[in-house]
Design a protein around this nucleic acid. Structure first.
Length: 989
RNA sequence: GGGCACGUAGCUCAGUGGGAGAGCGCCGCCUUGACACGGCGGAGGUCGGCGGUUCAAUCCCGCCCGUGCCUACCA
């Protein structure tokens, strides 16, 4: 028996690929071609042409015409699904009424359906179709995860939760489409897809957005106002001081705003056709995420992986919070080196240090030079005297001092940079903290134990000049002070030895910050990572990176890690650190013995809730407890996305089925954060990798080839592009880019994608309107049809290979070029006239069958790329024929689709037909007549061998070219396969 | 400073040890019974530069130039 639409069970035998299962039934596939049965997918039945004949469960909605048609048709619905019916209704309601198109005879007699082209709108209304199919997919549960199926048949995606407070831009569509392409392919390969979607809403971006939106500031000491309702601030209001709101009010405002932001994202995702299972939606501040983040903390605490410490650490003076190494970026800034003369205690010796931070002179706690530096060796036992403040400080040798930098000798301050912190620790230097948490110079008094001075009065007078100033103001004033000879530590004139020399150098900033970081001693929580570099590197190597060179990003970052992970943030909107500290009799917190919340208490807010068994009245009372006010670093929660999806610790059976995930898509700039922390968490919690594959998308660049981002102001909003070029068009643009490759945005590509959808629409309309009525089809009789099918079969193999290698762009190029070059431009044109011929029933049946085979297979190959148009055309007839209401759950094309198609007599006959046809077209173009113009007569010249091979397909060629009479002429001077058209006489118009 | 990626037609990008490609744009023609949201035909490139390996290099190797990113330094 021959069939033309066969979402068969057996899959194309693809290359062995150990780590990347090609199919849920891998291993059985190759052996059981034609016999393998897919798991539970309704399409995996052996009744490919069946039409739903079950009595409708919605008889009142069933149009009579359809019911009549259905009653006529034989066959069975293989799985009793009623879904097919919904689609049929849909189609019918829109006026494209399917009707019997012909009969296929064989072991079983089947019918196929065709459409009335007049009933299909001339132009495809994409916006309408996008809304309609989105609703339909939701209704049908097309993208639902089936928890009853085993892990081996499941494909798990760890979705990136976008920061909803960030601006939506076209880059979102780009990278999320890449994921969706893979997901849709895997779904059609029979996998049970787990594709959740989360929103990352906690953290600084949301707080900042809320502050601006309502023009408010949070004051944790303020009273909660349960009736507070705020409107977005007006321009006038913004000129006033921000309104102060309580912590709880502030958090509520954050929730309000993120709820709205999530809606916008979700709307865009749905419009773009992401095949997410929306039942698996989560937010990183929702109850489950908070609970899991807190459970994560407790697990790490119990395992000894977290600790709290009071120490100088990187601090953003604007946000006033501590930072992790991953939050910090270098920025090139203008600076200046200042040469400042120091004295040596009890001598008249002197030396000159070089510094870019003269304002820290009052915080100088030591001086150091390289131990082998002949210029300074003799000073190492001495104490230096600082200028202006006359503070004696130790001079010590250090290998870290570079004799070639600056003057070779430098001052150590508390704290100018990370090296200062290290010297301070190693040498046991005193602490003279100068920079406050708000970035201004603290008030200090010289002549005290903490700030000794040989001339306290003068020091205090001088310091008064810079106290309370910001760092940059203080620096400016300090330079002026250093120009005055009175401040000299040696009596040798102005301490500043020369004019500051302007340089450009890299300064550490918080990535969202505007002022340089400072090192400020604070108490923070940390996750121990430095002692686990080797394990982290090993896990990174266990993961497969696509493209592979992205692996190096992870390795570089991990190898260069300098600090443990600081996870506490002095913010309000986030996941609270679930900890209380006992208070001693004097009301001082005991940080050494924190009380960690019990698992069954989580999620918990230690600011409003008490430890288990404690009396809330004991809060902040001597002998009682105090709640930790800090929240977690956003990444502490985001690094759990695989576990949030799998419900780790909440549902162990589910977790076992969904963890580790198969694939993690992400952008390359967050390898150091999201990927790194996620690998770290999986290692610390379970000694596992979090996912098997990381798929890295490139960036979207603006036409100037700059990265598109809100901060650069070059971000393009996606919705207008989706509306202008359709979702399928936008997806086409995304799909054109290979993984890891940055892509300049180019609307021309969107346009091409829209054009492709239009062409699919029109080709579908044409093919499905071809009928054989009551004629019988047995097999592909015709050489051209067989040669076309053979080519199509090769395309299927190539597209499948490309997807298996995660090269969606290649799969698209292959499919698109085949569709255009071999299907619409040639095969349809050549088979067209036979498909309508009255005198050749077998040839006509063969043509119609081959056209439908081509359309059916190509639609499925395009389905991941253009989900809307393919679903639309699929719904016209194939949905019913296959009893598979959605193409997105139909089976990916494979050798099974061709199992009953005979091989052509000559593999090259399709190309030969095309060549001859093109030659005639060229003759017409040269004669400036239309392609549709009939040709009264012409002569075709070719070699004898070529003409002989042409014989099998020449009827289609001349019919397609509308040639009435032709003469074949042997030409020995032409190349094999080449044609020359002469003596063409064109018909009158 | 170290590393990775990239450099091919006006633009956006494929590609391969032996013939230089696609789409868009451009030029000319054609309103054909799926499609003018279309079709046919055509022009257009010293494959960043210089060396090397090879019978043969756009492709492999080295150096250089340019672009982007990661990472480091940051007196």
């Amino acid at each position: 028996m021959w069939t033309f639409t066969t979402p068969g069970a057996a899959l194309l035998a693809s290359r062995a690929n150990d780590e990347w299962p090609s199919s849920p039934m891998e291993g059985r596939v190759a052996a059981a071609d034609g016999e393998g049965r897919g798991p539970r997918s309704p399409t995996r039945s052996r009744a490919p042409l069946a039409v739903n004949t079950r009595p409708s469960t919605h008889p009142t909605r069933a149009p009579k015409t359809i019911r009549a048609a259905v009653d006529v048709m034989g066959g069975q619905n293989p799985n009793g699904s009623e879904r097919g019916y919904a689609t049929r209704l849909q189609t019918t309601e829109r006026g494209a009424e399917p009707r019997l198109g012909g009969i296929i005879v064989g072991a079983e007699t089947k019918h196929f359906l065709c459409i009335d082209p007049e009933a299909i709108p001339k132009h495809f209304d994409a916006a309408e179709a996008e809304r309609r199919w989105d609703a339909e997919w939701e209704k049908q549960g097309t993208y639902h995860y089936d928890p009853s199926r085993p892990r081996s048949e499941t494909f798990v995606v760890d979705t990136p939760p976008p920061t909803v407070s960030g601006s939506l831009h076209i880059g979102h569509i780009f990278s999320y489409t890449h994921t969706d392409l893979l997901v849709r392919y895997k779904r059609m390969r029979g996998f049970n897809i787990f594709y959740p979607m989360g929103w990352d809403d906690n953290g600084v971006p949301t707080e900042r957005r809320v502050q601006n939106y309502f023009h408010v500031r949070c004051d944790p000491g303020a009273e909660y106002d349960s009736s507070l309702r705020l409107e977005p601030a007006t321009a006038k209001q913004r000129k006033d001081r921000p309104r102060i709101v309580s912590r709880q009010n502030f958090i509520e405002l954050c929730h309000d705003v993120t709820r709205e932001d999530e809606k916008a994202f979700k709307q865009l995702w749905r419009r773009a056709g992401l095949s997410v299972d929306w039942r698996e939606e989560y937010a990183t501040v929702d109850d489950r995420s908070r609970q899991l983040a807190q459970l994560s903390f407790r697990d790490l605490f119990e395992k000894g992986h977290v600790y709290t410490a009071h120490a100088p650490f990187m601090w953003d003076v604007d946000f006033q919070m501590a930072l992790a190494q991953a939050d910090v970026v270098d920025r090139e800034q203008a600076g200046a080196t200042h040469q400042i003369e120091f004295g040596v205690e009890g001598t008249d010796r002197r030396f000159t240090i070089s510094t870019t931070r003269p304002e820290l002179l009052p915080a100088c706690v030591g001086v150091t030079a390289h131990p082998d530096d002949e210029r300074y060796r003799h000073l190492f036992a001495e104490r230096a005297i600082t200028p202006l403040f006359r503070v004696p400080v130790p001079i010590f040798p250090s290998e870290r001092a570079d004799p070639d930098k600056g003057t070779g000798i430098l001052m150590v301050c508390t704290f100018g940079d990370a090296t200062d912190v290290e010297w301070w620790r190693e040498q046991g230097l005193v602490l003279r903290q100068l920079i406050g948490r708000n970035g201004r110079l603290l008030t200090v008094e010289f002549g005290t134990d903490a700030f000794p001075s040989l001339d306290a009065d003068s020091a205090n007078r001088t310091y008064a000049e810079i106290a309370n100033k910001t760092v940059s103001q203080a620096r400016k004033r300090m330079v002026e002070l250093l120009r005055e000879p009175a401040g000299s530590a040696t009596g040798g004139g102005a301490p500043l030895q020369s004019e500051p020399e302007v340089i450009r150098h890299a300064i550490k900033f918080y990535e969202r910050g505007e002022r340089p970081l400072e090192y400020v001693p604070t108490r923070q929580w940390f996750v121990r990572l430095l002692d686990k570099k080797a394990e982290l590197l090993a896990k990174g190597d266990e993961v497969q990176w696509h493209p592979d060179f992205m692996r190096a990003r992870f390795r570089d970052w991990t190898e260069n890690l300098q600090l443990d992970w600081c996870i506490s943030r002095q913010r309000y909107f986030g996941v609270p650190i679930p900890v209380w500290y006992p208070l001693d009799a004097e009301g001082k917190p005991d940080y050494v013995n924190p009380i960690v919340a019990e698992p069954d208490q989580m999620p918990v807010d230690p600011i409003t809730e008490a430890p288990k068994g404690a009396d809330g009245a004991q809060r902040d009372r001597p002998g009682g407890f105090t709640g930790e006010a800090d929240v977690f670093d956003t990444w502490f929660t985001s690094s759990l996305t695989p576990q949030i999806g799998s419900h780790w610790r909440l549902d162990p059976a589910r977790h076992k089925k969904l963890f580790p995930a198969d694939v993690r898509p992400q952008a390359h700039e967050i390898i150091r954060t999201w990927a790194f922390y996620t690998i770290a968490k999986a290692l610390l919690h379970e000694g596992s990798i979090p996912w098997k594959h990381v798929v890295v998308s490139g960036w979207v660049l603006d036409p100037e080839r700059k990265k598109m981002s809100k901060s650069l102001g070059n971000a393009i909003t996606p919705m207008p592009l989706l509306e202008k070029y359709t979702a399928d068009g936008a997806r086409y643009w995304s799909a054109s880019a290979r993984l890891g490759t940055d892509t300049a945005i180019d609307e021309k590509i969107f346009k091409v994608g829209k054009r492709l959808a239009t062409k699919i629409y029109n080709a579908g309309k044409f093919v499905l309107s071809q009928t054989t009525e009551r004629l019988e089809i047995e097999t592909l009789h015709n050489e051209l049809d067989r040669a076309f099918a053979a080519k199509l079969r090769q395309l299927v193999a190539r597209a499948t290979d490309a997807f298996e290698e995660l090269d969606h762009a290649q799969a698209l190029v292959e499919t698109e070029s085949f569709f255009w070059n071999y299907f619409t431009d040639t095969f349809i044109e050549l088979a067209k006239s036979r498909a309508r011929s009255e005198g050749d029933p077998a040839g006509r049946g063969s043509a119609v069958a081959a056209l439908r085979l081509g359309l059916n297979v190509l639609l499925r190959l395009f389905a991941p790329f253009q989900p809307y148009i393919t679903e639309e055309v699929w719904s016209w007839a194939f949905a019913q024929e296959t009893a598979q209401p959605s193409i997105h759950r139909a089976t990916w094309p494979s050798a099974m689709d061709f199992r009953d198609v005979p091989a052509p007599g000559d593999e090259g006959s399709f190309d030969l037909a095309t060549a001859c046809w093109s030659a005639i077209n060229k003759a017409k173009a040269d004669a400036e007549v239309s392609m549709g113009r009939a040709v009264e007569t012409l002569t075709v010249g070719a070699t004898a061998a070529t003409l002989e091979r042409l014989a099998a397909v020449q009827d289609d060629v001349f019919a397609g070219a509308r040639v009435r009479e032709y003469r074949l002429e042997q030409r020995g001077n032409l190349e094999e396969g080449a044609f020359e058209i002469t003596d063409a006489v064109y018909a009158e118009r």
